[in-house]
Simulated scan of single mutants.
Amino acid sequence: MSCLKKSLRQVHRLSNGLFACQRKGYSEEKPKKPSFGSFGNLRLEPEFTGNMPDDEKTQFTAINKLLNFIEADFSLSSMRNYARHMINLEEIKSQTLDDDTKNRLGVDLAAAQMVLQVGGRVQFAGVDRWIERKGNSSSLPNYRVPDLRLQVVDFTNTKIIYEGLKSLEGTSIKMLILKNCENIDDFCLSRLYLFSDTLEFLDISGCSLVTDNGLGALYKLKNLKYVRMNDLPNAGNKSSVANLLLNENPNLVVLSEDLHLDEYISESSPKEQDRSVSEDLSAPDSSKQPQRQTQTHSEKS
């Protein structure tokens, strides 16, 4: 079949890489019959590629589409790989934030909504409770909240990928939990320098794709205080990497046992709770925003 396809592409092939084909008539008049030894009304088109526009104006376009379909691999493994590819595309789309969402909600709130969408949970500065998705409803407001700072993100047992981590860029995150995340690899760890100014706690336990190379990239996190890297089957020299990290960051503590997250959050959180932020998060309904503005206007009058 591939030989037939190649022969069809080389019909009337010219020296400059183009081939000539019969133009398809579009008028009601019958096209004139070409004389012997001529090609009639010629149309020059480039050799067919995957990016060729499907204008359906030539017979060669339709023939190549048919041959591509016939030559496609419809085996079980190929179909499985195709389905996995489409799922990955959907995950990338769902974990990528556009500029309109960031401008409308703010970077911290837009990132928090993405975390909840993939099955994670968050905490904000000044709010002493976990916020997570319950069913199909989100417990976050759908409007911009002033002075809202994302502080803790927990992606435990989720399918977070690099695009989701990149969506956290611009936030003031201090604690990042990636426990048992099957898609976190060395490349993801190498890009955590995006949070080097604020990140203080990192948990990558149970990330089976992480190797010693990914652990070595954590030296870029100069403000990191605690790191937990238990149960990493592909990291065989954790002790050597830990010594390297300690040489680069003497204040770093490599945890071998679980640290109570509530204790760490209470120590790193502001002592005084922001009342306005807490009220906005406790009333996630977007319809309450204009009511709050109306009340303020009546008080001023």
Rank of each mutant, 00 (worst) to 15 (best):
F48K: 04
L150M: 09
L14Q: 12
P46D: 04
L244E: 06
I131M: 11
Y143A: 04
F48D: 12
S138F: 15
N68W: 06
H297F: 13
V118R: 04
K222G: 04
T96Y: 07
P141N: 07
G126A: 05
W130V: 09
L209G: 00
K134D: 14
S75V: 05
L215R: 00
C3M: 07
K33H: 12
V127N: 04
P34R: 13
M175A: 11
Y26A: 11
T156K: 15
A62C: 08
Q291A: 09
G40M: 09
C21Y: 05
E248S: 14
L261V: 11
D100V: 12
V11W: 09
K5G: 03
L89G: 12
D54V: 09
D280W: 06
T171R: 02
E299A: 05
S286M: 07
T211D: 04
A20Q: 09
Y82S: 11
S301R: 12
E45D: 08
D285A: 11
I265L: 09
K179Q: 14
F60K: 08
E163K: 10
N88C: 10
D98M: 05
G236Y: 15
D262E: 13
L194C: 05
A242L: 01
T211L: 05
Y264P: 00
D274S: 12
S286Q: 10
L89Q: 14
R9Q: 15
Q123D: 00
L116H: 04
S301H: 14
D100K: 11
L4P: 01
L148W: 05
P290Y: 06
R133V: 02
K222F: 01
D100T: 13
A217C: 13
N251L: 06
S286D: 12
E45R: 15
R104W: 06
K271F: 10
Y219D: 11
S196E: 14
N81E: 12
R228K: 15
S256V: 02
V241K: 02
G120T: 08
S75D: 10
E45H: 07
Q289N: 11
I265A: 10
V127K: 01
S287Q: 08
I131H: 05
D185M: 06
T156R: 14
P53Y: 06
N81G: 06
L189E: 05
S298T: 10
Y226I: 11
R9P: 00
D274P: 03
E91S: 07
K65P: 00
N142V: 02
G164L: 00
E272F: 12
A242R: 03
